[in-house]
């Protein structure tokens, strides 16, 4: 099996009526953009990939990641990272503890702390370890959320309108950061958005749902 994320004849239905259907392979380092107006089921598609489909939806088809069928795995064993339009940093944990939550277990305390500090400085947030996430700016939060996810070593990346809450300037910056990282780590990316600029910046195939 090839590396990458495969959606094999995935169909989501609600009350027996088909909502979304997608059959694609996303190669490592590539971006597949799914566009369409809100309410068309873009986020529902992502929740099928993460394994958190809400009770009133039904999904069929297989999700294959790097040759492994993850369709029936529980969400926490799928190795699929996701970013939402809200940063969703855990409000009760410091910035550093948020990253530690993402970092896979293993290594000494000092070692882990060092890796987290490094991750912070990679995105220009040196010295933010003990900060309350609620005191960060929108762009800073988005970067923490990104690094938290990357520290968990995902094998694929999902973006659920991930940039739509940011202002124009931050938006381009954050977007480039995310795509650069994903390319550098050879991650397949599945992005849903209603924003044409996001789609253009992704540079990959675009699927439009109606």
């Amino acid at each position: 099996m090839p590396k990458g994320l495969t959606l094999d004849q995935v169909v989501i239905t609600k009350d027996a009526a088909p909502l979304v259907a997608l059959d694609r392979h996303i190669a490592p380092g590539e971006v597949l953009t799914v566009m369409g107006p809100s309410g068309v089921g873009k986020s529902t598609l992502l929740s099928y990939v993460t394994g958190t489909l809400a009770g009133d939806f039904r999904g069929s088809g297989r999700v294959v990641l790097d040759g492994q069928d993850i369709t029936d795995l529980p969400p926490h064993q799928r190795m699929v990272g996701i970013l939402f339009q809200d940063d969703l940093l855990f409000p009760h944990l410091s910035v550093g503890a948020n990253l530690a939550f993402g970092l896979r277990p293993g290594g000494s305390r000092i070692d882990r702390r060092t890796r987290i500090e490094e991750a912070l400085s990679e995105v220009g947030l040196e010295g933010f370890f003990d900060r309350d996430p609620a005191t960060l700016s929108g762009g800073q939060k988005a970067r923490v959320a990104l690094m938290r996810m990357l520290l968990s070593n995902p094998c694929a990346l999902l973006l659920d309108e991930a940039f739509s809450r940011l202002d124009t300037e931050r938006r381009a910056q954050t977007r480039n950061l995310v795509f650069d990282r994903a390319r550098a780590l050879d991650l397949p990316v599945l992005m849903v958005t209603h924003d044409a600029e996001d789609a253009a910046a992704a540079g990959g195939e675009i699927v439009t749902l109606a």
Partner: peptide
Amino acid sequence: DTRVGTVAAALGASPDRILWRVRMPM
């Protein structure tokens, strides 16, 4: 917000860990 749970699971946290370490403190 159950998306917080989705994020935590995507980070590899088991359902029990999400309950004890994320949901209950929040």
